[in-house]
Design a protein around this nucleic acid. Structure first.
Lengths: 143, 143
DNA sequence: TTATTTATGCAACAAAGTTGCATTTAATTA
DNA sequence: TAATTAAATGCAACTTTGTTGCATAAATAA
């Protein structure tokens, strides 16, 4: 696993530092996107708050992770599909934000429908977020 | 115009207060969504910061306006279609966030495509945001 | 192994949003 | 119309998320 992380960092031209390897390993293991405050809680004070923000920003710029805003406007990050680069993010999938547990899921299989936008406007990126109850919370409610 | 605003407040069971009429009149005249900080700048210190937040929250709960998050995670508000109520928001249209002027437009004519979401998940609201260059900024760039 | 570039940690700051409480105002009722 | 009451406002203080500047430390290159 550590080799994989090192390769990923190297491939994107990032130095292999403690904080970067740690953050990347945490994100890789999750099935939901994580915010800086969440990572801070998971990792603890071994990594500085500001470093977390900078690591996340660096990863995003290099196309290792992508950013999604949750329903509160908090930035959450998830590991990108391996085809992402610093030139182009291929995160054009739908995201799901659970209104109970607040988790954000990448719906990798759901890709965003094409839109015809009005003349005069130019589209760069399209974002689609479904708010609702996730599978785990639904189980808790019904079960 | 003032009659119209009063009617709107009354219809939704809200007292007609100075701050509410003022905020509603400002929002009605705009073609882009406004955040609390923007409203604060437009209106000035005649209305308290906290009151602005509370007025916006009240309007949203009653279905007079709807909330959209811009690319920075800041909440922006726009007047709803008249068919909105506190029970159901009919703001299922696409929003456009200009990456230059940061304005958020309601694309009232573009409605959000239907999605089939995975089993186990329950959808409540769907949000679709297009990021790009708006018509006015495109004119400035090309003209 | 040293030099150089880059990343980290710390402190301080900034913006957006929230909470508690006293005061004022709008609507109600007498 | 005046008194009552419920709700809205203003103010102060606070919280959370995110940013900036700068000195120190660590990773790669020479």
């Amino acid at each position: 696993m550590n080799d994989e992380l090192n390769d990923l960092l190297e491939k994107h031209g990032l130095k292999k530092t403690g904080p970067r390897v740690k953050v990347l390993s945490v994100l890789k293991l999750r099935d939901t996107a994580a915010s800086q405050p969440e990572l801070e809680e998971i990792i603890g004070k071994e990594i500085d708050r500001v470093t977390l923000y900078r690591v996340l920003t660096a990863f995003e710029e290099k196309g290792i992770i992508h950013k999604v805003l949750d329903m509160n406007g908090t930035a959450k990050y998830a590991v990108c599909d391996s085809s992402c680069t610093d030139k182009q993010h291929k995160d054009e999938h739908v995201h799901f934000n659970c209104t109970l547990c607040l988790n954000v899921y990448c719906m990798d299989t759901l890709h965003i429908p094409q839109l015809v936008i009005p003349a005069g406007f130019t589209s760069q990126v399209v974002n689609m977020m479904v708010y609702g109850i996730c599978d785990k919370c639904n189980l808790k409610l019904k079960g």
